[in-house]
Simulated scan of single mutants.
Amino acid sequence: MEINRFIEMGVAKTGSQKALAKALDIDVTVLSAVKAGRRGLSNVVCIKLADLIKVERIEVIAASDLVTEKDEEKRKVFESCFGKTSRAASLGALALISSILTFVPNSPTHAASSSEYVNNINYKQLIVDQSRVCGAASDI
């Protein structure tokens, strides 16, 4: 049951089931009943729990409603709420990485070594110097 996982996350965050119940403004027996599958949490308590454990609110609400819902069609609707946000986040991260890799300039496959680059600069300098000398000689 998903709701038990969310409750355990809340217990880990607050330190105990009693502390979690206090943080949610409910009696500890309510948490016990939810964990046992005898009842669900109100939407307000689900939202408080989701905010406390930093998960999507709809996932906690759906998990709580699954505890008591018997209609198979409605259960499928609630079950469809799980993981949608994490799938969307994964797709968003994938798109971000893809766009970063697309815009990062690629280095040439056969890049010149630093000594070749220096030699190229020296060669250009030599050509410039020769043109000055040749140009000066033609002025005479």
Rank of each mutant, 00 (worst) to 15 (best):
I61E: 06
L101G: 15
L94E: 07
V67M: 15
T68S: 14
D65S: 12
K74Y: 08
V60I: 01
D71H: 11
D71I: 03
S64M: 12
S64W: 08
E56A: 09
A89T: 15
E73Y: 02
V67N: 09
V67W: 11
K76R: 15
R57Y: 06
G83A: 15
E73F: 07
S64N: 13
A62L: 06
L94T: 08
S80A: 15
A93Q: 05
S98V: 05
C81Y: 04
D71W: 04
S99E: 10
A89Y: 13
K84S: 01
R57W: 07
K70F: 05
L66Y: 14
S98H: 14
E73N: 13
I100M: 15
E73S: 03
L96M: 03
L101P: 01
L96Q: 11
K74R: 14
E72R: 00
S99W: 02
L66Q: 06
L91F: 10
D71Y: 07
I58S: 08
V60K: 06
R75N: 07
E59R: 12
F82E: 00
K74G: 00
L101Y: 15
F78C: 02
D71P: 02
S98D: 08
T85Y: 13
F78V: 07
F78H: 12
R87Q: 09
D71T: 02
K84F: 03
I58A: 11
A88T: 11
S80T: 01
L101I: 14
A88F: 13
E79M: 15
A50Q: 06
A89D: 07
S64I: 09
L91D: 09
R75W: 03
E59A: 07
V77N: 11
S99D: 08
L94N: 00
L52D: 06
K54M: 13
S90F: 05
G83M: 14
K54T: 12
I100Q: 08
K70R: 14
E72C: 00
A88H: 05
S99Y: 13
V60P: 03
L52S: 10
I58Y: 07
L91T: 04
I61M: 09
E56D: 15
